[in-house]
Design a protein around this nucleic acid. Structure first.
Lengths: 234, 234
DNA sequence: TTTATATCCTGACAAATGTCATAGTTCTAT
DNA sequence: ATAGAACTATGACATTTGTCAGGATATAAA
């Protein structure tokens, strides 16, 4: 983690995506004074499972994964974060240790906001509080979906759905590939299966012309069919 | 759902367990005036997945399950609720439809609090807001654990752990049995497996003297060994 | 560039789990 | 009390998925 060029909150475009969208002018300049701009290199760990964070990070530009270490240290990816997402607030608000590790998937710029400052904003700004609650509650809904999928769907279905979720979450690059670079092992640790199974299934999806693959670049060629394979309805 | 004998919030012992523990006298009497006492018979559905609740329920006395309908209408139990727990707040706060159905596992008395009233308390009482956030954030942590378990543990391990969680959550009756009555099918829908697998594994656990079984009454005889089978460390 | 390391891929096999069929048992509502 | 429904139990079998081993490629560092 390094200091990085400071952003000014009032002028931050990412802010509009974040829980801080509703703040007034004074609150923003207050924020600007108390925050720190930090930089994480690709692969760097932002938070460690079990630690006590001293504040939260708001992603200015970048991507990160939330993961837990399960059986024998096996990584389980719980969810992703991108521009505007808040990291670490769950732990701070619940008063528990961080339940996940967070690692940068790309070079990531973020703003660090100390715990005390976060609580101050919450106390003084009910709209912000509501935004945070909304966020947490939305994530709870998503977690419920994931739980149901893990418990009831086959590996094939889960992988198909996961590719669609990744596309939805990170969008596409100029060539139409899903705009995130993940190893097969990381894909496996989202879907909850073995790396080999992911490799075999990706080959099969490609053979069936649902996707195309160039190394880690994956392009969804037939979203409708892929959704059908994944038993995705919503 | 029926009207049931009214409780007075000021004198409610269950309240101390709930998010309402921090309210002042006026707020409590205000609450008492706006709430309704309701009764759900065992098996009755309290909320329907996909609906828009008009308020939240606080369980005064009873037990309920949260579940989603997954593949081909198969039930997936996400979590349980007992005395003091708040039902439906996730949907109200996120502004989304309810993502789970909620059904009473026993005859349940609850208090209904209209949406507007909930928001009023949130606006006027930062401590209550913080309680709610804490709740949501805690649940998020629990959901993460469940996700990791579902993705990485075997059916045997998950069932063993689930029995311990149930014991932890609902306690024991006079004979030391886990104080909740669930069908094998419900157990299966928590663990994410087939009913037959649950039946077979329970028989095996019994054979190995980890548990004893009398119909739906299950007693954990050897928690240490059971935890070892479930690979439970925390 | 070259080398070392990590990642990717494939096949063969084993183990875990789900499905189907069938029968016994318990619960529940009349 | 009794019939019908729901639940529990067990066996045989099919399928899915994981594991291990080997080699091919790609990626990153010297």
């Amino acid at each position: 983690m390094n200091e990085s060029a400071p952003h000014i909150c009032e002028m931050c475009n990412t802010r509009k995506l974040s829980a801080f969208s509703e703040l007034g002018k004074e609150e923003l300049s207050d924020l600007s004074e108390h925050k720190a701009c930090v930089f994480f290199k690709k692969g760097q760990i932002i938070m460690h499972e079990g630690s006590r964070p001293t504040g939260v990070y708001c992603i200015h530009h970048g991507k990160a994964k939330f993961y837990k270490l399960g059986q024998e240290g096996k990584e389980q990816i719980i969810r992703f974060a991108k521009d505007g997402d808040l990291l670490g607030y769950r732990s701070i608000l619940s008063g528990e240790a961080v339940s996940v590790s967070i690692a940068a998937l790309e070079d990531t710029h973020a703003c660090f906001l100390p715990k005390a400052m976060l609580f101050e904003v919450i106390e003084n700004n009910p709209k912000f509080s509501l935004n945070i609650m909304k966020m947490a509650c939305h994530e709870l809904g998503e977690a419920g979906k994931l739980i149901t999928n893990l418990a009831q769907k086959s590996v094939t279905e889960r992988l198909a759905e996961m590719l669609l979720i990744l596309k939805e979450t990170f969008g596409e690059d100029a060539d139409g590939n899903i705009d995130i670079s993940l190893t097969r092992e990381e894909l496996a640790s989202m879907v909850g299966t073995a790396t080999e199974s992911v490799i075999r299934l990706l080959s099969k999806f490609k053979e069936d012309e649902l996707i195309s693959i160039k190394g880690r670049k994956i392009k969804v060629e037939n979203p409708v069919k892929l959704a059908r394979v994944g038993n995705v309805f919503d």
